[in-house]
Computed example of a mutant assay.
Amino acid sequence: MLKDMEKPMQPQVSPFILGVDVSKDSLDVCLTRKNDGALQHQKFNNNREGFQRMKAWMKHQGCEAGTDTLCCMEHTGMYTRQLVHYLLARGVHVWLESALQIKRSIGMVRGKDDKVDAQRIARYALLHQQQARCLSLCGVTLERLKDLQASRNRLIKALKSIKGTIQELLPIDPVSAKTLEQVNRKAIKGLEKSKEQVEEKMQEFIAKDGELKRKYDLMTSVKGVGKVLAISLLVYTQGFCRMDDGRKLACYCGVAPFEYRSGTSVMGKTGVSKFANKELKQVLHMAALSSIRNNGEVRTYFERKVGEGKSKMSVLNAVRNKLLHQVVAVVKRGTP
């Protein structure tokens, strides 16, 4: 199993650029050459047979679909997984880029068409390939952890929905609330049991992967960092191969403060950006609260800053930042 999940591309320029717009059932593929910039488009099915036809079509265009090719596509979750694995197994450089990054680099556009989107992705990759961050085969463990984490989140939402309805109804109509509790008792127990089994499976997969287990143990050695935050960070940073800088990780989680000023007329408050991973931010928020309750040093820091007149949310955000920087530090240092 390959461990380097995302790394900067080598300085050399790929002679062929492949832009792919991925949907559930189909792939819109645009192939361009570094020399002339000519665009060739074709549509294929998003399955093994379609991948083989795509490879044959690329070979007909003079592209070997190997190390001579850079393939750029947007993050579309599970729909890209099979294609990414197929291309990486053949040595193709695969670059998963943010859809927002591509969209903003193009400027104002009107309408939406899969063929045009593939062309735009290919042009973007051609212009910015020196900044490409290419993948290798993701560890099987990380992929399974990601799937289990998504399943856990769905189970938690279902439990909150059922329990929340009962709690809201209890002060208004106790008889009806108790009836709902009785008829949903088995469902609640079943969901809680499934949640426990999912968490056990996550621990099993981590225990089987020595490198992930080492990083997991390092993260959980930080007071306030529990198993939920540790696994979330492993999944979203791809084992800290995709993101290993404290400031960048804080920005990704939406806890890095930014100034809002311009000249003498715009003097807004320093605040965090709304462009963030909201799910990871929520988990980090709960970890920060736990750290304030259980870590004497953090609690002293929090009380001191609040006593100095700082708002509680501002200090809490600083605690979230400290947690992230501590996590990154212990992982990079390799000691608890």
Rank of each mutant, 00 (worst) to 15 (best):
L96P: 00
S176D: 05
H93L: 02
H128Q: 11
R104Q: 14
E97V: 15
R133G: 08
K163L: 03
S176E: 06
S161C: 10
L100M: 10
Q119Y: 01
S136G: 13
Q182H: 13
Q182G: 02
M78Y: 05
Q167I: 08
R123T: 01
V183T: 13
L127P: 00
S151A: 12
G164H: 07
G164C: 07
V94N: 03
R110G: 12
R120M: 03
S151G: 05
G139W: 00
Q131D: 09
K178H: 09
A150S: 15
K112E: 12
R81K: 12
L87Y: 04
L135R: 12
L137R: 10
A122N: 05
I156G: 06
A122L: 09
K157N: 11
V116P: 01
C72W: 00
I156L: 09
I156Q: 08
M73E: 08
R144C: 05
L137P: 03
R154E: 08
L180N: 04
L137S: 08
I166C: 10
L142R: 13
L142P: 09
M78E: 13
I166L: 03
N184Q: 13
N184R: 15
P171W: 03
L100W: 00
A177M: 06
E74C: 14
L135N: 07
D113N: 14
K103T: 15
R110L: 05
G107I: 10
V84P: 01
S105V: 10
L96F: 00
R144H: 10
R81D: 11
L100A: 08
G107V: 15
G107F: 05
Y86V: 09
V183N: 00
G111N: 08
Q82A: 04
A125N: 00
M108I: 14
R123G: 01
A125V: 02
I162C: 09
E74A: 15
D113G: 08
E74Q: 12
A122M: 07
D173I: 04
A122C: 11
K115V: 11
M73S: 14
E143Q: 13
I102A: 05
Y86G: 09
N184E: 12
G107M: 03
A89F: 10
E74G: 15
C138N: 01
L70K: 15
H85E: 09
V109Y: 04
L87S: 08
T80W: 02
K157V: 13
S161A: 15
K160I: 07
P174V: 08
T141P: 04
K163I: 02
S136P: 00
E97L: 10
L83H: 09
L88R: 08
L155F: 02
Q82V: 05
I172F: 01
R90C: 03
A89L: 08
K115W: 00
K112N: 14
K178A: 14
L135Q: 06
Q82F: 03
V175A: 13
H128A: 06
R123D: 04
A125P: 02
T76L: 06
Q119E: 14
C134K: 03
A187C: 12
R144K: 15
I172Y: 01
L170C: 03
V175P: 00
Y79L: 11
D114A: 07
L142A: 07
T179A: 10
Q101L: 06
K186C: 05
L126E: 05
H93Q: 10
K115L: 01
A89E: 15
V175M: 07
T179G: 12
Q101K: 13
R154H: 15
D113S: 10
I162M: 05
D173Y: 00
L145N: 04
Y86F: 14
K146W: 01
S176M: 03
D117S: 10
R152G: 07
G164Y: 10
